[in-house]
Simulated scan of single mutants.
Amino acid sequence: MIEIYLIRHGQASFGKPAYDCLSTVGERQAELLGRHFLKNGTRFDAVYSGALRRHVQTAAITMKQINGDGTPNLVIDAGFNELESSDRMMNCLCAVMQQDPALAEQMKHIHTDHAAIGRLFAIVEKAQLMPGDEAAHIRQVQEFVDRIGAALENLVCRVGDNKKVAVFTSGGPTAVALRQTLDTSREQTIRLGWELRNTSITVLRYDQGQLGLVLFNCVAHLEAQNDPGLITYI
């Protein structure tokens, strides 16, 4: 049996020149997550991270709270990266916000309201601000799904039985892993992805060749602070 902790990165820097970097809030979220693990006695036999900067930053800050000296044995696996077009859309979305004052109200809620994020993405798609071949996009999404499946299979093969593993990643890979676990539809998978909060914990259990869901989208480490501003989605 293997327990896989899928941890979404801390709040990224939406609205800044470089989205793929933790904001000050994101750094605080990762710190609180590490303290939560330390207090609860949660230790990991292996620690994985996607190759994006926000993944690695979240892993380093979180694991430093547990180990005191960071996480020297961090395994960087680009297989756990977000869908590339999703990050491009985030940068495109930022440009749209700056050019269209009418969207300012939506922008106010982008960090803390997952529904606002969905509405803004819909605006980008409707405006066709990210043109491209639909068939190519479908192919890229399938390749993304296959990549996440392969990354999970490789992890299971490498770590061995009776292990607890942390994987610092994004909402997309976590949603895909849930799809493979729960056999959700495409629409359900997208909705699950929007629900994932920054530094949330989703735990899967791999046993006898099957993945099962143990915990979904837990942010107890943030809720304990009684600060709604720490509950973010981007």
Rank of each mutant, 00 (worst) to 15 (best):
Q99W: 07
A115S: 14
G34K: 08
E134S: 09
G212V: 00
N198A: 08
A12Q: 05
T232I: 05
R119M: 13
L83P: 01
I2G: 06
A46C: 08
F216L: 15
H36S: 15
I190Q: 02
L213Y: 01
D45C: 10
F216M: 12
I110T: 12
A30N: 06
T181R: 01
V25P: 06
N67R: 05
T58L: 00
Q65T: 11
L52T: 10
L6I: 03
G10R: 10
A30R: 07
W194I: 02
F44E: 10
G229M: 04
I190M: 06
C92M: 12
G41Y: 01
R53H: 05
S200N: 08
P17W: 04
V219A: 03
L120E: 12
V56Y: 01
L103P: 09
K163V: 04
R158Q: 14
L93S: 05
F216C: 09
R8D: 03
E84L: 02
V219E: 06
I234A: 14
T24H: 02
R158D: 12
T62L: 09
T189Q: 09
N91V: 12
Q208I: 02
R8W: 07
D207W: 00
A12R: 06
K16S: 15
T202S: 11
T112I: 13
R8P: 02
N91L: 13
H111Q: 12
Q106Y: 14
H114T: 03
Q11S: 01
A60Y: 00
L196Q: 05
